[in-house]
Design a protein around this nucleic acid. Structure first.
Length: 770
DNA sequence: CTAGGGTTAG
């Protein structure tokens, strides 16, 4: 076979296995002259670039010639500079470059340098200096490549100098500069250059479209797009992705229809954008019709768009189909494919499958780690998220966490109430100079609010230059948990002043802030101002009225609801009935709740507490028996205290903590003191015929007491301790801790799921609704 | 040997 024959054959290849067959034929031909062999190999490598073969396979081809010549090296550099295999690319290009330098028999002609410079971006090799030293900078192509390099990878100022020195700048150079200015956020210079240009082509216009899309200015992006005289696939794709990446997938799909009518044929890139737009629309029928269209047209998607397809199926919950695509991709899988599959699993909460893939994947990038860390964080596994984060920064591959990592980790700390660990995480943010965006700041507000540092939360909020509705909602929820009702209401006014539209979450925050702070009037006014209140808002307003003692009004609200009330609504009524000892309404709410969620132990406990506070012990026993009959188990409660960066966990009856002996001694001593002070420890003692463990089940576990005792032991220098719990603070513990605060003269801050209880001198100052 | 568009994570 001649080179010409091979060439025509190579360009007809359309997938990897055909390439493989061709390569096999080449390998059989051992009698080839080295020069010819190199020609063949470099041809195959350029086909790898075209077909986007995985790096592992391309390297096999590269190594199949014992002494590659300069053309083989050049095609290899081109492969790296055109591929998206960023991972490992840095080292690969650098080692390829070193290999090439060590070969004294190679003459590196100037034609190699533009390619080298392009691929050097990821390798971080200082080519400019090198090229100057070699005296190659006067070469037209070399100089232009360097300029394009600086435009693309910065500093863009260097590109500007080179551009200014040029006397023979071509349209391509102008386009490179425009691209560079946009890329580095220099909108004004980009526009100035655009207006000054002697001539423009479709590339120039397309750069303007993507430039405006980067600044989220879709209006101008579209304005320039509409002015493009002769659109091509790339310009359509640019506008499509402008819509897709700025949260307007519907517009992208509309534009795609226009494109189909225009006669321009979509390509791989188009399919990738369109498929991902379909998946972010969440419109299954749309996705189905797209798949149908692809099948009709007999379009064979590349691995690149198949990843988008995989993600589309995953997002609509068809995990099996997604996995099938993943399995079929086989050798074509890259890091992004793995990442997409991992997040498909974490999205449905299948952390085990996600972790299995994560451990198995050949190469991880920062997105892989982020997917797994956030997977744990979003499925309530904050501690595991933190552990994995520690693995990440200790890992040998030297991956730096980025803002996405930090958002997940900071909010995991928030969920744990772990301020010490949170501060350590913040120190890592500073160490790596990670710039925080709005969501980064939002996670900080969340962390501080959850840990009771409202001053820091407020300060973080004030530091922000731009805030979104989540920033407000997070801070409002923080104030709500602390019983700072007025501050929350003030924030509602402030956000309206900043033209940020409150959403349903905002109103939930405001209403619960009002009810925790007893701001009946303000809360009611807010409720009436909600245009379309949903069931959650009703639950809040029932809570608001209920806590204020207006139970009959609360019941009327429930009766007037257009939609069917959910458990939260009746839960609020039940809780209010317990506070105000309204057995009739409590029984009513409980009966509804037993229908809606028969296995939620909390409802039984609340009802039995209502009976016990009225001394109706027969009814307490009756509720307990019905619990046993239905098989409802009270969830094992645990409390934890963060101390010196470590979480100390306590469960009733579990003495595995190393300071258990001291803790139980202190507990006994406090019990004695409390009895001497005339406080009847707890009412479970009335249930004489009940086993100890069952008493715990009935009235709530007392792990908080253990946690508080531990905290009292270790934090003697501090006035404030934090106890975090994943269950509601029960009445008994609340009373006990009030006593502790008085007897010990300590201020104690106790946090349960969503609010803070601040105890000092025998009273609970915020949210004291017991 | 020239420039513009793409899939995954919060």
């Amino acid at each position: 076979m001649s080179l010409a024959e091979l060439e025509s054959l190579a360009y007809k290849l359309c997938n990897l296995s055909q390439l493989r067959q061709l390569h096999a034929r080449l390998l059989i031909n051992l009698s080839l002259h080295r020069h010819t062999q190199c020609q063949w190999v470099s041809l195959l490598i350029s086909q790898c670039t075209r077909l986007r073969a995985p790096p592992s396979y391309t390297r096999i081809i590269f190594h199949s010639t014992p002494r590659p010549n300069i053309h083989v090296f050049t095609s290899m550099f081109k492969y790296y500079s055109n591929s998206n295999f960023n991972l490992g690319g840095v080292d690969q290009v650098a080692s390829l470059y070193r290999q090439m330098q060590q070969r004294s028999d190679l003459t590196i002609g100037t034609f190699v340098y533009p390619v080298l410079i392009k691929s050097a971006a990821s390798a971080g090799i200082q080519f400019h200096a090198h090229v100057l030293k070699l005296g190659l900078a006067s070469d037209h192509y070399v100089r232009n490549a360097i300029m394009a390099f600086y435009a693309k990878y910065g500093p863009v100022e260097h590109a500007r100098y080179l551009f200014a020195e040029m006397h023979d700048s071509t349209l391509a150079d102008w386009n490179n500069m425009i691209f560079g200015y946009w890329k580095w956020g220099n909108k004004d210079d980009a526009c100035k250059l655009f207006d000054m240009m002697p001539e423009r082509n479709v590339v120039t216009w397309t750069s303007m479209v993507t430039g405006y899309a980067r600044t989220k200015d879709l209006k101008n992006a579209r304005r320039y797009f509409d002015q493009i005289p002769q659109k091509n696939v790339v310009s359509w794709n640019a506008m499509l992705s402008a819509y897709a990446q700025n949260g307007c997938p519907e517009d992208a799909l509309r534009l795609f229809d226009d494109m189909m009518n225009s006669g321009d044929q979509p390509n791989e890139t188009t399919w990738a954008i369109v498929i991902s737009s379909c998946s972010s629309c969440g419109d299954c029928s749309l996705a189905d019709s797209l798949v149908q269209k692809l099948n009709q047209k007999q379009i064979h998607l590349s691995y690149f768009s198949k990843t988008a397809l995989l993600d589309m199926y995953a997002k609509r919950g068809s995990l099996q189909t997604a996995r099938q695509i993943f399995d079929e991709l086989g050798a074509y899988r890259n890091t992004i494919t793995w990442n997409a599959m991992i997040s498909a699993y974490t999205r449905v909460g299948d952390l085990a499958s996600a972790r299995e893939l994560f451990d198995r994947m050949p190469q991880k990038d920062v997105v892989s780690w982020n997917s797994m860390v956030s997977g744990y964080a979003q499925n309530g596994q904050s501690a595991l998220a933190l552990d994995l984060f520690k693995d990440m920064i200790n890992a040998a591959d030297g991956l730096k966490p980025d803002e996405v990592t930090m958002v997940s980790v900071i909010s995991a700390c928030g969920h744990l109430g772990a301020l010490d660990i949170g501060n350590w995480v913040i120190s890592i943010v500073r160490k790596h100079h990670i710039r925080l965006s709005v969501s980064g700041y939002n996670s900080l507000i969340f962390l501080y609010s959850k840990c009771g540092s409202m001053e820091d939360a407020k300060m973080t909020f004030q530091e922000m230059k731009t805030r979104d509705v989540v920033s407000y909602n997070t801070l409002i929820a923080g104030f709500a948990a602390h019983g700072h009702g007025m501050e929350a209401v003030k924030l509602l006014l402030k956000m309206k002043g900043e033209f940020i539209e409150p959403d349903r979450v905002t109103y939930i925050g405001i209403l619960s802030a009002c009810s925790h702070a007893g701001l009946l009037e303000e809360g009611w006014k807010v409720f009436e101002s909600i245009k379309a209140p949903d069931v959650d808002h009703y639950a809040c307003v029932v809570d608001l009225l209920g806590r204020a003692g207006k139970l009959d009004e609360a019941k009327e609200i429930i009766d007037s609801m257009l939609k069917e009330p959910h458990a939260g609504v009746y839960g609020s009524l039940l809780n209010a009935s317990r506070i105000h000892k309204r057995i009739d309404l409590g029984e009513f709410a409980a009966s509804k709740l037993f229908e809606l969620e028969p296995h939620n132990s909390g409802n039984y406990i609340l009802l039995s507490n209502i009976y016990s506070s009225a001394g109706r012990w027969d009814d307490v026993v009756r509720v307990r028996e019905s619990m046993r009959r239905i098989g409802v188990k009270k969830a094992t409660g645990w409390s934890w205290v963060e101390y010196k960066g470590k979480m100390h966990k306590f469960i009733v009856g579990d003495r595995s903590h190393e300071q258990s002996e001291d803790i139980y001694r202190l507990l006994a001593e406090l019990g004695r003191k409390m009895r001497n002070a005339g406080y009847m420890a707890d009412k479970t003692c009335v249930l004489r015929d009940v086993e100890e463990e069952e008493k715990e089940e009935m009235v709530g576990t007392h792990s908080e007491k253990l946690a508080v005792c531990f905290a009292l032991l270790v934090t003697d220098a501090e006035a404030v301790i934090r106890v975090v719990k994943n269950l509601r603070v029960c009445w008994d513990c609340h009373t006990a801790i009030k006593m502790i605060s008085k007897l010990e003269g300590r201020k104690i801050i106790l946090r349960d799921n969503n609010r803070f209880h601040c105890f000092s001198d025998g009273v609970c100052s915020c949210g004291d609704y017991w």
